[in-house]
């Protein structure tokens, strides 16, 4: 979570709100912010640090491990209509990469801005080639997009 806190401005630039969630109480969140996260990020955690003590929210999102009583690293991208566009769930020992979350948000925002007229192929980043789905493109993606040079 320190990576998200430290680079929060990148998410703000995209108009994104962040909510973090664990089974710890809001009081422990405060102490974690005060004693560790703020030192790693260089500033206080700028987003809501929510508490899911009984794992109810985690259960709804399929990321609560009842046996361990903790939540997996579940990351959900929710669009302005409240629809989940992307999710990534990792077991505890490996962290996420914020750049990948940002890339996916940028891609979903591009698709939304074009009302689905343009879609983002594998490895897409802003500025890279988009595809325009339609009858002419069927069977012809190989002519306009290469996994070797455009990926």
């Amino acid at each position: 979570m320190s990576a998200v806190a430290a680079n929060y401005n990148l998410l703000q630039d995209l108009g994104v709100e962040v909510i973090s969630m664990s089974v710890d109480s809001q009081f422990v969140h405060k102490v974690w912010n005060d004693n560790e996260l703020s030192k790693m990020a260089g500033h206080d955690v700028p987003f809501h640090m929510a508490s899911d003590g009984a794992g109810r929210v985690g259960t709804m999102y399929g990321v609560y491990n009842e046996d361990a009583g903790v939540e997996f690293r579940g990351r959900f991208i929710i669009d302005p209509d409240g629809v989940i566009q992307g999710m990534e769930v990792l077991t505890p020992p490996v962290g996420r990469k914020l750049e990948e979350t940002i890339r996916q948000i940028q891609a979903f925002q591009h698709v939304r801005a074009t009302k689905g007229a343009e879609v983002c192929p594998a490895g897409w980043e802003p500025g890279k080639k988009v595809l325009k789905p339609g009858p002419d493109l069927v069977g012809n993606v190989w002519k306009v997009w290469s996994p070797l040079t455009d990926h």
Binding site: M1, V4, L11, L14, G15, V16, E17, V18, I19, S20, M21, S22, V23, D24, S25, Q26, F27, V28, H29, K30, V31, W32, N33, D44, V45, P46, F47, H48, M49, A50, S51, D52, V57, G58, Y61, V63, V70, E71, F72, R73, G74, R75, F76, I77, I78, D79, P80, G82, P92, R96, T101, I105, Q109
Partner: peptide, 30 residues
């Protein structure tokens, strides 16, 4: 859910952010 936010204790609701992109991040523990 109850939350810690900018020095205070409050609660946060997903539906507090209509029309916004939201990233919801679960993690194992503080």
């Amino acid at each position: 859910a109850p939350a810690y936010y900018k020095g205070g204790f409050t609660s946060v609701k997903l539906s507090d952010f209509p029309g916004k992109w939201v990233v919801l991040c679960f993690y194992p523990g503080d």
